[in-house]
Design a protein around this nucleic acid. Structure first.
Lengths: 344, 344
DNA sequence: CTTCGCTATGTTAGCGATAACATATCGTTC
DNA sequence: GAACGATATGTTATCGCTAACATAGCGAAG
């Protein structure tokens, strides 16, 4: 025989008010530190609220205010070491501003991505932070989202000219730079292990590679460019395919779209009984936590993951809190990290 | 001159109803696929709802149902490679059951932990998943949470006999096992780089080490056990301290509470001009993504991170949906991974 | 052809909180 | 001491949705 109303054991304003014989408004005012509450009343309210274990119901508050202090984060793959760092940056910035984050993982699948975003909308997040699995082909979906007025900031992988801010790096020029590094080392036959080019980073990084090759008058054999996934397995298969070419038709250096792909490729190279960098030199992109540790430490591009997250969150929150905040495309500084995989 | 009511551009049931000249209840029923709606009416409603871009407001729904389909996840450090894997497991399980997750990072600080949990409660999550920074000293806080009826499942780091389920591994016996492995290799002077022992994993793993030493009649010099943080910096400092001992007073092998600590220790060893395992052998715990890659590949204990996450989420959701679900302490299988850092 | 009972639909109230307006109380001021 | 303004408190309506109850319409059964 307990109280008939259960409510998950949560105490409401009304219950606190009833105990003290005051109105709920007075309790609300006291708890929210609003003016016009007698000091003594306020003290009594705060005391009993605490004694009763009152916790404000933000769901109800959100319904009134149309504000949830929640942002959705949409990420392709939490296991790729770049993203936990980004998430950490987002997390810290968001927490500082009293926002919570909904973390969702899309496994780089666009259908999943749309589904989770719909779920986030239904939960009325104040805005979303997206690293999309698809930034080149189907722009319609995001155009609609942006048109609907939901604040949105992209990070890492950007849509261009779509009316949303993006925080990332200059993938084109960083990729060009690292390819040039290989060229300066004397390599001329350079292949490319690409990720899906329907994603901005896939396209941009590939573009940087092409630009560097062209600029130096080097030829790109069609068979040297292999497109596959953004992960180890993708790199492993792509390199496997390259290795089916007869030795003299093969590149003796490859640039990979990111570090996981480079690691997968290294495995394939090793399994073929070849050595990095002696037989095939390789460079990556990201500066994964493992990059300096693998058998042949990987030359790569450092991306400031934590800062990307922090900046993205901060931009989103600014956009949420001031709708006139301007759209901007931020490119943070990358750094070439030279290790041994490109020949010493 | 747009419509006066803005509402963030979101369409409501009422608006859809108004367009069709039916009541909101009919629309609600149609959209939620409830019985007693004429097929034709339903079709018309669904069509106009879609045309108008209606998205249900789950905030309002939650207020009515006291159910948010949201779970809070509290982890100490997203950068430690164990946790992203756990989060991935949680994520996938939760998504399958239509829950969203709030991810929060505590930086292993108990005050932050309490603060984020309060925030999660205020947002009325249906339950929380916690890897606490504090599982041995201040039990009061969690006792209160559990008593309040909020479903709670611990993972990785457990409180015992507190009335909440916990999903982890048998830290004691795994630690005992890996210490024994060192002993079997012939090491007798074995030190221990501990994490905070106010946390279950800190205490249990240390206990396993002590048990193995005792069982083999080996002495533990007080100066060989150093307590510091759970991360690289902690291991670096702890090992630095060990290295201040004169060489003959030093252990020639150490067990670390986890892999990041082992990595930090390895750095300190290298900086001191010593070699692993020749001068000092070392073993870790976790099987961090880097464990096989470092200069002296680390012998360690593999923990099934993904499964821990999946199981924890599944247990929590069961507990949420059926309050009679019994409390249980699940210990998943670990595996000793032998590499070179313990001598070959 | 009345009555029962089913289906389709509508109305009301309430989830917990707050904004906006209304009222009460009290000390000042002239 | 009447009138005013400030402060403290209460009342009402509303956010978007749904449970619960109410009603209308229509075919089947007697």
């Amino acid at each position: 025989m307990k109280k008939p109303k259960e409510n998950n054991g949560n105490v409401t304003l009304k219950e606190v008010a009833a105990v003290l014989g005051v109105s709920t408004m007075t309790v609300s005012r006291a708890i929210n530190d609003k003016p016009n509450v007698d000091a003594l009343t306020k003290k009594k309210i705060l005391d009993t609220a605490k004694k009763m274990g009152y916790t404000p119901n933000l769901v109800a508050k959100s319904l009134v205010s149309s504000k949830t202090y929640t942002i959705g984060v949409v990420i392709p793959e939490i296991s790729h070491s770049f993203f936990p760092e980004v998430v950490k940056g987002i997390q810290e910035e968001a927490n500082k501003k009293n926002y919570q984050i909904f973390l969702t993982n899309t496994s780089d699948d666009f259908e999943t991505e749309k589904k989770v975003i719909d779920a986030l909308r239904a939960k009325r997040v104040d805005g979303i932070l997206v690293s999309s699995s698809q930034t080149k082909e189907d722009v319609g979906y995001y155009q609609k989202i942006i048109a609907s007025g939901l604040p949105l900031v992209f990070f890492d992988r950007c849509f261009e000219n779509i009316g949303a801010s993006c925080i990332g790096v200059n993938d084109f020029s960083a990729s060009q730079q690292i390819t040039e590094h290989l060229i300066n080392r004397g390599y001329k036959r350079i292949g490319y292990l690409s990720g899906p080019r329907k994603v901005s980073i896939g396209k941009e990084r590939f573009g940087g590679y092409v630009a560097a090759m062209n600029q130096h008058g080097l030829e790109i054999d069609d068979r040297w460019v292999i497109e596959n996934g953004f992960n180890e397995a993708g790199g492993y298969h792509a390199m496997g395919k390259l290795l089916t070419l007869p030795e003299k038709a093969r590149p003796n250096a490859v640039a990979a779209v990111n570090d996981p792909v480079a690691f997968g490729a290294m495995d394939a190279i090793r399994e073929a009984g070849l050595k990095v960098p002696d037989d095939i030199a390789i460079v990556g992109f990201t500066n994964d936590i493992r990059a300096g540790l693998v058998a042949s430490p990987l030359t790569t591009v450092h991306q400031p993951a934590y800062e990307v997250g922090k900046k993205a969150a901060s931009k989103l929150i600014k956009t949420i809190e001031d709708r006139t905040e301007r759209v901007e495309n931020v490119q943070l500084i990358t750094k070439l990290i030279i290790r041994k995989s490109c020949g010493s």
